[in-house]
Design a binder for these strands. Structure first.
Lengths: 203, 203
DNA sequence: TGAAAAGTAAACTGTTCAGTGTAATATGTG
DNA sequence: CACATATTACACTGAACAGTTTACTTTTCA
């Protein structure tokens, strides 16, 4: 198989993925027939099936692919010589931005539409997502060890911060109840969250 | 039409509603065929259609019916001679209990399953739900007028509290990621939320 | 008891849709 | 050119499913 052949094939494949990504978000997996999809991708239905043997494979491929591209490493080293609010704002802003990013929302929409009535499967996938959230975890631990924050249950704190982030930058956007956030919005939300957290847990 | 006739008819109707409620939660609206439903209700398919002329009518009936039964009036009068934390805890506890009640979760599951890819319709329904949330609103306003709380944007505060409540007593339960909450859990969550809010906004 | 109301079983219609089979065509390689 | 690989058009299968029709039975009640 040569480069050029592969290139044509890859273009078709790309078109399928492109169309599927968009259609699944807009109409849902169930609302998108393979015929419709092929038409949107400007590709014959048979070609779709040559690349993805079943609809389920296509869906799973998309979810995993988008997961990869959505997974931006959020990292913020704890610094004992820098103000807490600045550091935490930096971290929370990254989380807020990630949560309301198109790539993450799109992924969440497809995944939820696909898994909503398959809670066992959903649980597995969510477990993976949780790995993502350990950066905040680590930062809080170090700040506590450094005697600048005090709390009893770190899981509780992470939960609270997570709730504040998602409640303002994820759930409303997921259901298209609220518009996308501007950078100003994100910073405003971030500052309020940090102010709240520090007023409660700062020593 | 006499009482007894109505009684047989009503029993059938009740069985249909009962079966639909359960099946829609478990398998989703799309995952529940009218044949399956009739079988689960121990009723002929035709009888289902005699009571509900289309599947859509049945779905909407259920959503509205459950909405009614779920809508417990949450009320807490602001009292200037009573500690803020006690009052707010009472109020937040009511909201937490409502959010993670079976009736509310069931409603949310059916509604989200039904509306997930119809954002326009969803928006309408959510607007109605928001009326529910004005009790917290009123309480906060009075506490501020009484100079015991200070904040700039009340919407912001309501949003934050709402996020904290739902992030711990609604979303995880909705997706069956977390088990139902015990009363102890609810109080623990409530106390933490109130402590956080007051540490930030109490004068 | 007999008429009206409600329910039942089962076959049927029409549509949507995932997935397949096939024969023809296009594209690129050696 | 000859060969291999991809793509296409399109007809087809088989299943699921919303909603209907029909011929028949049960329940209620005047």
């Amino acid at each position: 198989m040569t480069d050029i052949t592969r290139r044509r094939s890859d273009k078709k494949r790309e078109a399928i993925i492109q169309a599927a990504t968009q259609a699944f978000q807009e109409f849902g997996v169930n609302g998108t027939s393979m015929d419709k999809l092929a038409e949107l991708a400007n590709v014959s239905k048979r070609t779709v099936y040559n690349h993805f043997s079943t609809k389920e494979y296509l869906v799973m491929h998309l979810i995993k692919e988008q997961w990869q591209s959505a997974l931006v490493d959020i990292n913020a080293e704890y610094k004992s010589d820098s103000p807490l609010n600045e550091q935490l704002e930096e971290l929370v802003f990254q989380e807020v931005s990630f949560m309301c990013s198109d790539s993450h929302l799109e992924l969440a929409r497809v995944a939820i539409g696909h898994f909503f009535y398959k809670p066992e499967k959903l649980k597995d996938e969510v477990t993976q997502l949780k790995a993502q959230e350990s950066s905040l975890h680590r930062w809080l631990k170090k700040a506590e060890a450094d005697n600048r924050l005090t709390f009893e249950d770190i899981e509780q704190v992470v939960n609270e911060i997570d709730s504040l982030i998602k409640g303002q930058s994820f759930w409303p956007q997921l259901f298209k109840i609220e518009d996308n956030l501007s950078d100003d919005d994100k910073w405003r939300i971030t500052r309020n969250i940090v102010a709240m957290v520090l007023s409660r847990y700062e020593c």
